[in-house]
């Protein structure tokens, strides 16, 4: 059982759901990212996605794209990010998952990337440009290292294919709420609830929903059907918007926003 499997098993025993924040690594710098990883438990967070900056992220909207561009312009490397994760995991119960392009994983070497990530304390990988048909080499390496390879299912995924993806996924299923790229939405498509409920019947794996999620009402809408909710651009934008204020204040504000979303997850 991977760290993610254990975490969801425990959440299920407790009858709880989880909020999964997404942070762009090294935005505005690695100290900020690690400090936030240390403090996330204050908002009840157990699992966090860390986005590895990539030069050509076609699944990302402007907020995350720009955060990657800023980090790359400062010369950030994958090694520095994994080292920073390694330093912080001993001090936080939060399990990090890297969201990383296959371009990066392939260039490092599948074995090398997975091994380095595992040694750094990474619990799983999300590789957004690696669909099912291309995933078996990386899935095999992840299996050997007991790292979860979280795959995505989207509203455009035909049902038969969704079942096949669910069979091959480890950790949890990332259900993409919208047809489109990452970024805050005012409203989520109403059919997302039925889609996730259908998927719920097909698999025992935890299902976490992301893309577009940015408001407590989104979280409330998803709470009855999902095991977790992922929030990304809304956080990254808040970090950019508060670049002129003291870091401690930014972190307080982020934690308070995350608490607000986490509360919306509790089904009364």
């Amino acid at each position: 059982m991977s760290a993610i499997d254990q975490m969801f098993a425990q959440l299920r025993r407790e009858g709880r759901k989880t909020l999964i924040p997404f942070l762009s690594a090294a935005d505005p710098d690695l100290d900020f990212t690690t400090e936030l990883l240390r403090r996330l438990p204050e908002a009840g967070i157990r699992l966090c996605e860390v986005g590895i900056p990539y030069s050509d992220p076609i699944a990302d909207g402007p907020v995350i794209q720009d955060s990657y561009t800023r980090a790359l312009e400062r010369g950030i490397t994958v090694r520095e990010i994994l080292e920073a994760i390694h330093r912080v995991v001993a001090e936080t119960p939060v399990a990090p998952i890297t969201m990383v392009s296959y371009a990066i994983v392939y260039r490092h070497g599948l074995q090398a990337y997975v091994q380095e990530a595992k040694q750094a304390g990474v619990a799983g990988l999300i590789v957004p440009d690696l669909p099912l048909e291309e995933s078996s080499p990386l899935a095999e390496v992840c299996r050997q290292q007991d790292l979860s390879l979280i795959q995505l299912i989207t509203p455009t995924t035909p049902k038969e294919r969704a079942k096949r993806i669910a069979q091959q996924t480890t950790g949890f299923i990332y259900y993409v709420s919208v047809v489109g790229i990452t970024g805050e939405r005012t409203q989520l498509p109403p059919e997302v609830v039925d889609n996730v409920a259908w998927l719920r019947e097909q698999t025992d794996l935890p299902i976490c929903v992301g893309f577009g999620v940015s408001r407590p009402e989104h979280v409330r809408m998803l709470a009855p059907v999902a095991d977790g909710v992922i929030v990304g651009s809304a956080l990254v934008r808040r970090i950019v918007d508060s670049k002129d204020q003291p870091r401690s204040k930014t972190i307080e504000n982020l934690l308070s926003f995350l608490r607000q979303l986490a509360e919306a997850l509790e089904i009364k």
Binding site: D129, P131, L132, L152, T157, R161, V176, G180
Partner: peptide, 8 residues
């Protein structure tokens, strides 16, 4: 090597 959204 594209996001799942485009596969269909």
């Amino acid at each position: 090597f594209v996001p799942e959204t485009l596969i269909h």
